[in-house]
């Protein structure tokens, strides 16, 4: 009888140990070891914009004869192309060009917005940031530009966005007054 009880006790003890091992396995790997995703002396610069370039050519006013040649339900005074030009984006940090990319329009017919989303890990500190965007068919220069002196702190996420209706580039974090004139401007 005593032996049977001992065996039974040993079995339950063994089961307890197995459950405890499973609990330790679940409890430990549920949150350890800790993972360092980002260093404290670094920051993240995120460039994210979705903007439609201009149409590949100007709209053309149709002649009366051309309008008359169209089916009645499709007659309109101007002929505009669907396709848009790629948007050229540049990001310059302390004079070093880190992004220069012609971003193609999205969509099967190339009529959607150009989209770009990029992350850069940079050391914390003060930077002279220049961003430029060309949305037109011009071969030289840019349609939008912003330059600012920015101080980026530890693990700060500094976002560069763009909204034409808000005047152009948007910096998602506060910027210090620039040494040189910093401006968001729609260039001519």
């Amino acid at each position: 009888m005593g032996t049977v009880q001992m065996r039974s006790f040993a079995k339950y003890l063994g089961q307890g140990i197995v459950y405890a091992l499973i609990a330790v396995l679940l409890g430990v790997f549920a949150d350890t070891p800790a993972y360092r995703h980002f260093d404290d002396d670094k920051a993240e610069l995120t460039l994210s914009l979705a903007h439609s370039g201009k149409h590949v050519r100007e709209c053309r006013r149709l002649s009366a004869a051309e309008i008359a040649a169209l089916p009645p339900n499709m007659r309109k005074p101007v002929d505009c192309p669907r396709e848009r030009v790629p948007v050229l984006v540049e990001v310059e940090l302390d004079g070093q060009l880190i992004v220069r990319e012609f971003v193609p329009p999205s969509g099967l017919f190339g009529d959607g917005p150009s989209q770009i989303y990029k992350n850069f890990v940079i050391p914390t500190g003060s930077y002279n940031l220049v961003v430029r965007l060309r949305e037109s068919t011009r071969d030289e220069g840019f349609d939008y530009q912003r330059e600012a002196r920015v101080v980026i702190g530890p693990r700060q996420r500094f976002v560069i966005g763009f909204r034409a209706e808000a005047g152009g580039f948007i910096f998602g974090a506060t910027t210090e007054p620039a040494d040189s004139p910093a401006d968001t401007q729609q260039l001519g």
């Binding site: 409890g27 790997f29 549920a30 949150d31 350890t32 800790a34 980002f38 693990r155 996420r157």
Partner: peptide
């Protein structure tokens, strides 16, 4: 023994540094 807890609240202006991942 080991209740599940949260990290500090999310802040999209700051990149999370050290994280307690659920490795499963």
């Amino acid at each position: 023994v080991k209740p599940a807890v949260s990290h500090p609240p999310a802040d999209l202006t700051v990149v999370p540094g050290v994280l307690k991942l659920d490795w499963f």
